[in-house]
Computed example of a mutant assay.
Amino acid sequence: MTPHEFADLYSGLQQLQESGFSGGAALATLVHTRGPVFRRPGARMLVFGDGRVVRGLSAGCPEADIIERSRDVIATGQARLLRYDREHGYDALMELGCGGEMEVLLEPLRAAGQLRFAEVVTQSLRQRSQGLLMTVFSQDGQCLPQPRRLVWGGSVLLDELDDPQLSDTLLSGVAPEDSLPATRLERVATPGGEFQVLVERLRPPLRLVLVGINTTALALARLARGLGWQVCLVDHREDSVLSGLPAGVDLLHAQPQNLAQQIAPDTRTAVVVMTHNLERDLACLQALRAVRLAYLGALGSRSRAAKMREAAGVTTAPLHAPAGLDIGSETPEEIALAIAAEIQAAASGHGGGRLSAGDGPIH
């Protein structure tokens, strides 16, 4: 699931803990899919005992069935593996309307210790660390009464497996940060049995740095915050005071030559230069040319963008200038939408084309 979704989930888990687990809750995790479905493995939904829901696994169904089954899981305190295919839950499967199949892990949450993994993952994301969340939920074909988790972020941050051989086997497949595997389901054989493990890549939220403050920058900042991105506005004037900043947006004073050092970018950082001063824009782009970023863009006309690309030379992150997808944008809000869409595509490794023009799977 995305960092934004995990933040919402963690907020719900905190509410559960503050209530003393009154009424209990169940956590539904999509662990396996086959064919076209609305979500990928790793998507989660929190179901409170009174039926309230945080986030979701699909466009609506089989959520009703999951909510109903959550009551049994909360009552028994035993996790269950729900299958929605042609042999199990077929009615709910038909309501999906997508022709796919899915398996959902449904686990009870009735004690603080069961929330420990969420606390560790949240802390890792806040520190902008990359890592892995491994959830062991089945042994020899049988769902475990309670899933066990291992969190890795450069080192072991949490190990609930109580099985050194299983831990060693899982950790032996850990790769450097740049090549962390995508979310996947693994079968791991040890002398203690064969385990099913959901392995999820943990990545910090996108961080958007907007160099230059104007109506388009503010529109993009508001949109980005709604997407759950971290946002920082950069102004070169040390004495500037900006009122009306969108909630949660940081303001940084920095000169172009110090930009890279002061924003402390990483591979989940996107930077858009839009000062409307060509010399200042060029100085910012040159300061960032050797920095590894998720996205580097600049606002301007095609002729202005050509000058910026020539002056910036070869950059570590491809320079998107003019920034944004071609959607006929005119207003600041429309331009913001075009730029945010291009950033999302770049960060996800997608081309940003029309879904209707392709014939492969959407996810």
Rank of each mutant, 00 (worst) to 15 (best):
40 R>F: 08
111 A>Y: 00
38 F>K: 11
118 A>P: 00
115 L>V: 09
43 A>M: 06
48 F>S: 14
117 F>E: 00
49 G>L: 01
120 V>W: 08
67 I>D: 01
45 M>F: 08
48 F>Q: 09
91 D>F: 13
43 A>Q: 09
69 R>K: 12
115 L>S: 03
89 G>R: 01
69 R>Y: 09
113 G>A: 07
52 R>Y: 07
79 A>V: 03
61 C>D: 03
61 C>Q: 08
99 G>A: 09
116 R>F: 01
114 Q>L: 08
116 R>A: 06
67 I>L: 09
44 R>E: 10
78 Q>A: 02
79 A>Y: 00
114 Q>W: 05
79 A>L: 04
99 G>T: 12
117 F>V: 12
51 G>F: 13
71 R>A: 13
119 E>I: 10
36 P>N: 14
111 A>M: 03
88 H>R: 06
84 Y>V: 12
115 L>C: 08
61 C>F: 05
57 L>V: 15
109 L>T: 04
80 R>M: 08
36 P>V: 11
112 A>T: 12
122 T>D: 11
90 Y>G: 07
86 R>Q: 15
120 V>D: 00
96 L>H: 01
42 G>V: 14
82 L>V: 05
106 L>Y: 03
103 E>V: 14
69 R>E: 03
60 G>A: 02
67 I>M: 13
48 F>R: 14
85 D>C: 04
50 D>P: 09
105 L>S: 02
107 E>A: 13
104 V>S: 13
86 R>L: 15
39 R>Q: 12
87 E>Q: 14
49 G>R: 01
92 A>Y: 07
66 I>P: 04
45 M>V: 14
78 Q>D: 01
95 E>W: 01
118 A>M: 04
36 P>H: 12
90 Y>W: 15
60 G>E: 05
60 G>K: 03
92 A>E: 13
83 R>Q: 07
84 Y>L: 12
45 M>A: 10
76 T>Y: 07
